[in-house]
Design a protein around this nucleic acid. Structure first.
Lengths: 207, 207
DNA sequence: CACACAAATGAACACTGTTCAATTAAAAAT
DNA sequence: ATTTTTAATTGAACAGTGTTCATTTGTGTG
């Protein structure tokens, strides 16, 4: 076949991402296959290389979709939470875990896909990834009550890493973490301890 | 060829793990190949399946070797550190990162290999993995000054997850963590905050 | 209606994991 | 010393993968 009018370029791109994302959610990163994804979209392998330029770019696009869904999930959880001190942060951490749990394969694929330092990520996809940091940034800043911006940025990254670590080890089943009944609760506890430590020191550095 | 006397069963097992580990360190999990590992050992693919029963078991054996090296690395760092309050924990966290940094591919492979829940891990390999938790357990208990054993166990797992999260995001280059100059320092800061919070509350629960 | 263009294809290549009948070296029995 | 037995090692076979690119084929234009 040659040029078909089934889909516009954008629609085709979207379709391939859609099918790839579904396949990723179903099989996981290790058993993902570009051939199979294309097959499900009603196209053949070559089309993926035509549209995305390579497998890496395609995987980035697929994972970016997960990022967008993740952000939306977090925002939805926060929208349903009153502006009650610690409650919003608790909702944020719980929603973080809930999304990963409900989308295990897709969530893990984000970290399974090692992107070569040379590969350039599309602007829109980079934005999708940074949106998540943005949400945490906003909520932490809100909790701290507008503290030093630079220190907050550093802390936010560290808190994300903290929660990520708990979530990753939980889903991978590594370590004896399995006997932990509430990893999200543990992550939240660590986050609140860190925030408390910073709330006391940042506005007026007593020590 | 049939039975050869080049290596005893144990020596062959060791040789294959050795070569596999070297290949993993060199190429990383995604580009690892059992065929190539066997080739380097001077055997053919089938031998790996004969000796280990399957690829999963082989990968577990290879990664367990990394675990053992990691534990030894941590113990060496601790052995060179005086019993000076926070210094040992700082050394532990720094050594954790240093090992991962010095053995990026091998370290990441530990978490890249998703073990099916049905696959049973050999007793000795399970021990190699738990040894690491044991080291952290020992040092944290030492720092806390013998607190509630069960609460400490939970905290230890959570602290490991915290440090793991920082290390994993650092090496994968995810998020904007890249602009963080000292992720190990951030991890250590979170660990000390968590420990401080527990030091105050565990011996005599004031609040 | 013929032409030009670009999208879509799928065979080709080199690789992977996995299985298992055939081979072959060493040990045991004659 | 020779045969037989035993078990370790092989590698071809199969189904799958990523990647490339000459070929085909719809589509819109001259």
């Amino acid at each position: 076949m040659g040029r078909r009018s089934d889909h516009t370029p954008d629609a085709l791109r979207e379709l391939l991402i859609e099918c790839g994302h579904a396949l990723m959610a179903e099989r996981g990163f290790a058993k993902f296959s570009a051939r199979e994804a294309a097959r499900r979209a009603g196209y053949s392998v070559g089309t993926i290389y035509n549209v995305f330029g390579g497998l890496d770019a395609y995987l980035i696009a697929v994972n970016s979709r997960t990022f967008r869904e993740w952000s939306a999930w977090l925002e939805a959880a926060l929208a349903a939470t009153p502006d009650d001190g610690d409650a919003r942060l608790a909702a944020l951490v719980r929603a973080y875990f809930a999304f990963a749990d409900a989308n295990r394969n897709a969530w893990m694929a984000i970290y399974d896909h090692r992107i070569d330092r040379t590969t350039t990520i599309a602007k829109q996809d980079e934005a999708a990834r940074e949106a998540l940091t943005g949400i945490v940034d906003r909520e932490v800043t809100r909790w701290l009550g507008q503290a030093d911006a630079e220190a907050t940025r550093r802390l936010v990254r560290s808190l994300i890493a903290t929660v990520h670590g708990h979530c990753a080890l939980w889903l991978s089943g590594s370590y004896a973490l399995m006997r932990e009944e509430d990893p999200a609760g543990q992550a939240l506890a660590r986050v609140m301890e860190a925030l408390s430590a910073h709330a006391g020191s940042t506005p007026s550095p007593i020590q």
